[in-house]
Design a protein around this nucleic acid. Structure first.
Lengths: 352, 352
DNA sequence: ATAACTTCGGCAAACGATTGCAGCCGCGGA
DNA sequence: TCCGCGGCTGCAATCGTTTGCCGAAGTTAT
């Protein structure tokens, strides 16, 4: 009947320690104005009573909440994706260390239409938003470009608005992947694309691919580019179409690992050997890439690290330590077996 | 220089509408004490000024926050797992509809040692915790069994403590899977287990497997049970060992789809055909199960729905509408091609 | 016309912290 | 002995809402 487990407040601590409310508060906030002896006494009472400061009350007085929202697009299995998973893990770990909590949000229509992305700030519910997987159809980010509210794109950026971001150097990554194939002698290279119309970083990879073609004196052939929808199934279909239409293709560059893996699977079905018949290079380096047989040569993205860094910067942004963050992370090729670069057996291609 | 974008408070609304603070608050809370005309006037001012009530202040006064914590174990890629992803999606969607926010937490050592799972409640930061993927090494849940703080296990349960939960009927699922194999004539059935020592539901599947063996008059052979660590790689290894030691095995029952898929992959490598040489049945029905070739026959778990239901119940728990929730969801076998039940060609096994 | 109800809206006390400012106390120097 | 100065503490205002209780009108019954 009786609520014996009554929660203590700062007032209880003050009384029990024989000091004033403010003294307790100052102790709680590590204010040097309080002497060591008083501090110790108060701390002891806190310990004894198992007191926990009410976070809402503090947030109210502080006018910030030490909570970050992580926003992801509404994908079929948004939370079930390695890509998002790794980044979120990075964000979470760093946030915890910095004393921040993570709120989950999905950019559903309703979220956008009701302007939740503004409400979250205005209701003083969160201190900042980190958006993973934004694309150019997410027009609403324009409203967050004025720097009034801490906002950041994670492993993504846009040329349209002046937003904060932390992103891999996709261009350089794409360049390395394409260059690798060309160096191995390939000249008829199929490209499995995806999201090029909406995603800036996808576009970057495609462009760097063309750039390599160009600087290698290889003619760009639009027929060698087919969309794989960024999924494994899409990658399978794309590979099939690509090879059917262009039997002379000796290598495939897929814009992400999922499609690359799908392509490899399809080639396996088709009785084509990787890398002997067709070389494959991917992008992202998801766990399955190293686990596949043959191991997938791909551009390694330090997703977890990117999440951590982005979170770190976000907090700096909130604290006003920086006013803008536009950081580009270098990424590198991880050579495995899918391009034949490590094989004793020579690749099917005549070296130039 | 001037912070022109000053946020409005309830006070501003009161002044601008010519009413008192409390009236505005009552309007905000749909209190019938306020007349339609007054309500309309206040609402108009709110609309005009774009006022947003401060969520922290409300939480302080309400003494609850309309925020739920979703807790996941510290796995290698906890957030990158389809299993968790689906459940979290379900929770998120239902929570949004009910006006709740989702806070993400990982049961790391630090989280447990510093008793964050209690602090979260005591700091009045969240209204409840939903734990996905708990196992028997998570002893701390004992402290949440007294019903004092809304807590729930999602798709999981334990016999040790009296906790709230929403869980699939793993026993019935396991029974169906095993029965399916037996009905098809298999008598030497390999079982790829995982987490049986720590996870009650894993144990349930294994037990139901033995039960079917028993009621079918098939001797239980411990050699046919090997651990696959719940991962794809583990499944591959387990299948290899299983088949090496017991060449007479005609079917494999894996405790989850990942391992089943790994097993199929290994058999492919080994030149064994599924289902002609070995039938395979899994558990969970992750997306890849239907996508695999041959399609994996498995027990379908409505993970997304379970998440939704669990969230719904959690909110009822918080509102005191129910005091205990221990719900068991029926699950069913989804027949695809990996057991040969649908094939024209007869399975390799002589029908009994 | 008066008593007894309703309706509707305002006052002020919470909710549980933070923090600027003022005051107290003891000690050393003149 | 008196004054000034530091070092500590405490008072009280503030953060932005909610809500119990009270009272002014307006209604209806007698």
């Amino acid at each position: 009947m009786s609520e014996s487990k009554k929660r203590y407040t700062i007032k209880d601590i003050a009384e029990q320690s024989g000091v004033s409310l403010s003294t307790v508060s100052l102790v709680l906030n590590d204010n040097p104005r309080i002497s060591q002896s008083t501090r110790a006494r108060v701390l002891k009472t806190i310990e004894r009573l198992g007191y926990q400061p009410n976070r809402m009350a503090r947030a109210l007085a502080w006018r910030h909440t030490r909570t970050l929202a992580v926003l992801v697009p509404q994908l079929r299995h948004a939370f079930a994706d390695v890509y998002f998973g790794e980044i979120v893990s990075g964000i979470y770990d760093r946030a915890s260390r910095l004393g921040y909590k993570i709120l989950l949000e999905v950019a559903r229509n309703e979220f956008i239409e009701s302007k939740e992305y503004l409400q979250l700030y205005d209701q003083k519910f969160i201190d900042g938003i980190m958006f993973i997987g934004a694309n150019s159809r997410h027009r609403f980010v324009a409203e967050l470009a004025d720097g009034t509210r801490p906002f950041m794109l994670v492993n993504n950026y846009t040329k349209e608005f002046d937003l904060n971001y932390v992103v891999s150097n996709y261009r350089y990554g794409g360049w390395q992947a394409a260059k690798h194939l060309v160096r191995l002698g390939h000249r008829r290279i199929g490209f499995i694309s995806g999201g090029v119309a909406e995603i800036q970083t996808s576009q970057d990879i495609l462009e760097s691919f063309k750039e390599v073609l160009d600087e290698s004196g290889i003619a760009y052939d639009p027929k060698l580019i087919v969309d794989g929808w960024l999924t494994e199934e899409g990658g399978m279909k794309a590979a099939e179409e690509l090879l059917r239409q262009n039997p002379d293709v000796t290598a495939i560059f897929a814009l992400n690992d999922k499609m690359a893996l799908g392509a490899m699977k399809k080639m396996n079905e088709l009785g084509l050997r990787v890398p002997q018949d067709v070389a494959v290079v991917g992008f992202d380096d998801i766990p399955q890439a190293s686990f596949a047989i043959p191991g997938l040569t791909t551009i390694h993205q330090p997703l977890y690290e990117i999440g951590k860094l982005a979170c770190e910067r976000m907090v700096e942004l909130i604290h006003g330590k920086v006013s803008r963050v536009q950081e580009v992370i270098p990424i590198y090729l991880t050579v495995r077996e899918s391009c034949g670069a490590r094989l004793k057996e020579a690749p099917a291609v005549k070296t130039v």
